[in-house]
Design a protein around this nucleic acid. Structure first.
Lengths: 137, 137
DNA sequence: AAATACTCTACTGATTAAATAGACTAATAT
DNA sequence: ATATTAGTCTATTTAATCAGTAGAGTATTT
């Protein structure tokens, strides 16, 4: 399961995706509309900004907004920023790989099965973008 | 990511799958071969037994063994027992469903995207079984 | 200069993960 | 019977992460 933090992050990104092109959106507005604790949301948005997904403007008329068009950011990359690895075990992670201490990856059955699963999952998450998070009417 | 506990559990199940039909296997043997803290492994195996995946025999010549042929138990069911939900968010979980407080599932973009992802993941995990965890030679 | 709004650091409490200890119970062999 | 083996169960501990809070600081606009 994704952490609550990541779920909040994705909700917020969906909200910002829907408002793309309309200028900065207040953190407080996102928090209110998406029912996210505001201080918690602050740190999530900042993290997404530091990774280039979001941009912000300070002062009056300020707020957060997508750094790029909604279709430019995949769900896979957004999830990796907030949640970390997408793979189910470290030895099949593409972006957060860690070698298994005791198993030979060439022969490990678990490794193979999890690599398969990762591929299936990524096939979706690399294709879906923030655009897909926009709520239907 | 799966919890360490679940990773240990799957490793142990792979080991028992390889020995299916050869009678009970000592916890201590599994722990040694798979480098799993033995007391931690105890609780994992017990949990799997209580859910019907494993069976055990006490006393001399005792140990744990698969309750059914390796191909009878899917990875999805094994993971659900030890780790819980496979879905990335509660509102698309089939076995651990929880309603979203604030979003309408019919229109929620995140819900749709995560349901897709869940389907792709489950398509693999429901097909793969403990048999697939057996290490190659 | 005042108001607005994001930024950053630090902290707290709750939960879960991971592991350990030890007493108990069941089965087997002698 | 009884000693030994090996799983069962309860409780505890330690560490890490999650989730959320507080407040001072900085940049921007009017």
């Amino acid at each position: 399961m994704l952490s609550k933090k990541t779920q909040y992050g994705l909700k917020a990104l969906g909200y910002l995706a829907a408002k793309y092109g309309e200028g900065p959106v207040l953190i407080s507005e996102i928090a209110r509309k998406k029912k996210i604790p505001i201080k918690f949301l602050e740190s999530i948005l900042l993290q997404l900004k530091n990774k280039g997904v979001l941009d912000s403007k300070k002062g009056k008329g300020g707020g957060y907004f997508l750094a790029n068009a909604p279709k430019k950011t995949t769900l896979a990359s957004a999830i990796r920023i907030v949640d970390g690895p997408i793979a189910m075990i470290p030895c099949v992670s593409l972006n957060f790989y860690q070698k298994c201490k005791d198993c030979n990856e060439a022969t490990c059955g678990l490794n193979k099965a999890m690599a398969f699963t990762r591929d299936a999952t990524l096939k979706i998450l690399e294709k879906k973008t923030l655009y897909d998070l926009i709520d239907a009417e």
